[in-house]
Structure formats: C-alpha cells, structure tokens
C-alpha cells in the first residue's frame, strides 16, 4: 500500500484490491447500502466517503470541512468505533476488506452519515461552557504561570475540537439523554481552572447531579476514543472533586442545625 506514481502522488492499488464499503443510508429507520471502492495507498476513510459521493452516488450526505483534523466535522462510526475520518487511514480501521460506516451514535440522524449536532452544543451551553468574565472588567492582567497546576489542568483538556466522538462513545449519554456528556464536562473543567473566569459557582452547580459529573461511570470510553488524546474522564473526576465541598458543607450544615 505504499506505491506511488512517477509524479509522487499515491497510485491506485492493483485492480483486484477492492474495498467493500457498507454505508448507512437514510435516517434512524434506514439501512446499509453496499459500495465497492478501489483501495489506494494512504487512503483515509474520508477519502472513501468522498469517492463514493463524487463517483458513485451524489445523494450520499456526510459532513467535512478542513480534512486535517482541526474542525471536528467528519466524525463517524467506522467499523464500530467512533473516529475522525479525515485522520483515519483505511488500513488502520479495517481488518479484512469491509469498511462499515455509520453516523455518530447518541445524536439524531439528519441523513446518511450526517447527524444533528444541536443537542451536543446545547449541552456545552448548559454546562456553562462559555468564558464568564464577571460583571466588572478586571483592573489588570491575570498572571497565569504556565507551570501552575490550574494552568496544566486547563491545558490538558483545552484542545477539544468538538468532533462528538466522545459523546458518541459514552454509555451514560445512551442511557440518560439529559446527561451533559464528556465534551461539555471537559470544557467546564477547563474553565473551572481558568484563573480569569468568574462563573464557577453557577458552572459547578450546572455540572452536578443527574445530568452532570456525578452520573459518570468512569467507563473511560471518551478517553479511549478521543482522537486528540484528551482524557475527559479525568476532567470529570476533577469536577467531582471540585463539587465535593458543597454536599459535605450542606451535610455539616444539616447536622449543626439539628
């Protein structure tokens, strides 16, 4: 699979090397449709989808933008695993010659491989995933040392590209549709560690309870599948620690009252 043509571009593999591709068509009540695509050197899963759409069936719907792993648009379930398809080579996703492509799980299917990301981003909002500067602007710069524990904790999760892979992989989201999910909780944790943010009381309240960090089972699917190698499980564990004083405080207050 490493052959190149004289101009240095990847050349088509021999004709007998064909990839069988099963693609989900329609919405939730849809079905798989089979295609055949020539295997090529360094071919990505997104290349395969694009080849089907441009050469075989222009009605195939899917989503992509940057092709270089920055925008988080092209995530799909590839042979059972949620992946970013632009940075996933067919050779690493396929065991044999069958590629099975499905839309991300836990999100409504718009059509074929395209899902509605609105619930995903609504949960970012619900988890107070936006920076909160406070009512009055700060009088001076906030000094943040690069080696401070809070800065390191924020750095560990800040590279999320919102691809939805973790959300698709999360069992708790599948069980509880209101659960905020790993990406939103990871985002909340980066802001909890932002020295400049002034919205943590409301944020910690929003990420607690049935819809928040306390419902996480620590299955670590989000951490296993994150294409950016982030660890939302540890971000969620951080939120559990950050919210711990509040129930303990309430318990103590209850005991003191009685």
């Amino acid at each position: 699979m490493t052959s190149t043509s004289q101009n240095g571009r990847p050349a088509a593999a021999p004709a007998e090397e064909t990839l069988r591709v099963r693609v989900w068509r329609g919405q939730a009540d849809g079905a798989f449709e089979d295609f055949a695509v020539p295997r090529r050197a360094s071919q990505t899963v997104l290349d395969v989808v694009t080849e089907i759409q441009r050469a075989q069936d222009p009605t195939l719907s899917y989503r992509f933008a940057c092709r270089v792993g920055m925008c988080g648009s092209c995530a799909m379930v590839v042979n059972g695993r949620p992946r970013w398809t632009c940075r996933t080579r067919v050779s690493e996703a396929v065991d044999g010659d069958i590629l099975v492509l499905e839309p991300l799980r836990n999100l409504p299917i718009v059509k074929d491989l395209t899902v509605d990301m609105v619930p995903f981003f609504e949960k970012w909002r619900d988890a107070h995933g936006a920076f909160e500067p406070g009512e009055a602007p700060p009088s001076d710069f906030a000094p943040v040392r690069p080696d401070s524990p809070k800065r390191k904790a924020a750095d560990a999760g800040v590279e999320c590209i919102n691809c939805g892979v973790c959300y698709s992989a999360c069992d708790v989201v599948a069980w509880n549709k209101d659960y905020l999910g790993p990406a939103a909780l990871n985002r909340a944790w980066t802001l909890v560690n932002d020295e400049r943010d002034r919205g943590n009381a409301a944020r910690l309240a929003a990420v607690s309870g049935d819809v928040g960090c306390h419902s996480c089972h620590s299955h670590m699917s989000c951490t296993e599948f994150c294409p950016k190698d982030l660890a939302p499980t540890y971000a969620i564990a951080g939120l559990k620690r950050a919210t711990a004083p509040s129930p303990i405080g309430r318990l103590l207050a209850l005991l003191v009252k009685s």
Binding site: S208, G209, D210, H214, S215, K240, T243, A244, S246, P247, I248, R250, L251
Partner: peptide, 8 residues
Amino acid sequence: MNPLLYMA
C-alpha cells in the same frame, strides 16, 4: 446522581 448521594 445527586452530589450528596454520590458522596454517601
């Protein structure tokens, strides 16, 4: 899960 139940 309620945070108090979680801690308990």
